[in-house]
Design a protein around this nucleic acid. Structure first.
Lengths: 198, 198
DNA sequence: AAAATACGAATGAACGTTCGTAAGCAAAGA
DNA sequence: TCTTTGCTTACGAACGTTCATTCGTATTTT
């Protein structure tokens, strides 16, 4: 699977993936040329292909890795049985934590996934759908228990998912610690979502 | 100025701008070719240049038009003297309203502005900065009056600005009316931001 | 007649990628 | 120990394709 692309392999390959993520984040996938990437890594463009198969593989590799983190995260939350409110809190913190660990890859995951082409695109979308469905299990439980205000649960899902983009924007604007920022943002979201009775 | 690019002129030119906005939104600026655009409009690629100057002009035109709407909006709110809480409510609704009127252009404004090149880019960033500063005037007043929870005002600014991306995402996911969606979202944000003592 | 709009053909530049090849290095065979 | 073999990593040159744009010219509209 493409999902194993980055975490194994040589230092060089890893370096290429990291440089690609940074370039994709800064300039966008299509505006990033393999010549840009080669320059950033410090080798000739053709030499890149001793390590990777294609430009596309770089993009989908980054996106699948990040997606897997989200998927693993939400499933850990579901299996670990806690109160619904705690699970919701953990769910928001999951987004903050992933942003904290590697905000560059997460930005690519958020903004550049649509440039993945078939057949990987279908796999990616299926993965994302699974993640959203898992989140919905938690959110719907919260709705049933009356923990949230009376809101469409899809809007709640979007509030949580969107928090990553909120972090991106704030990070760019404030260059604050992602951790501090994450706490402020998750508090804000939770305050907005939760019923007033604590 | 480029800002007047779309709202005047012939039907054809308008049609080109609208088609470009849709393509930029769906595929991104760099992934959209002038051949795609010509096909969408129904003429040959070279014929586009009887109406427009360049591909870049399309992007910056769309972005400046949208930016001007934000700028005009926030200034109207500031001049119209109301309570701070009302101004804040209006500020959030401004974002909802612009999304409602033309979510396609707003999506381009949000996601594709970084592909604007100099010298227009500097103008664009200056415009956006002005807008953010004006928003900050309102937000800081709210903070001073204790209307908001105790949060960094920059984080609040980002919450409001980010609402547009929230709407984008929700719209794509739910294909709901932007109006209904906007109300739910602004309520959520306000509940999150406002102090509990109503 | 003048201006606006359309076209086909052509342009140079940039793109991702492939190719043949060579240097460096490790294990295997003599 | 010397040589052979094979693998990894690097390279420069070149490939075919696509890109945005220009040009001269025809057709249509005013």
């Amino acid at each position: 699977m493409t999902a194993t692309a980055t975490h194994t392999r040589s230092t060089r390959k890893q370096h290429i993936y990291e440089a690609a993520a940074t370039l994709f984040r800064d300039k966008g996938y299509n505006a990033t040329s393999m010549r840009d990437l080669a320059l950033s890594v410090g080798i000739e463009p053709s030499s890149l292909y001793s390590h990777i198969k294609s430009k596309e593989e770089l993009l989908s590799g980054i996106c699948f890795d990040c997606g897997q983190q989200f998927l693993d995260g939400v499933r850990a939350i579901i299996s670990d049985q806690s109160t619904i409110e705690d699970q919701l809190r953990q769910l928001i913190f999951l987004h903050v934590k992933i942003a904290q660990d590697d905000i560059t890859s997460m930005t690519v995951f958020n903004d550049e996934w649509r440039h993945i082409t078939e057949p990987e695109l279908s796999l990616f979308l299926r993965m994302r759908k699974k993640y959203e469905d898992d989140c919905m299990v938690i959110i719907n439980s919260g709705m049933d228990e009356g923990v949230f205000r009376n809101i469409d649960s899809h809007v709640v899902l979007n509030a949580i998912i969107n928090s990553t983009q909120w972090i991106q924007r704030s990070k760019r604007m404030l260059s604050k610690e992602t951790g501090v920022l994450g706490n402020q943002i998750s508090d804000l979201i939770l305050n907005g979502l939760l019923q007033d009775n604590n």
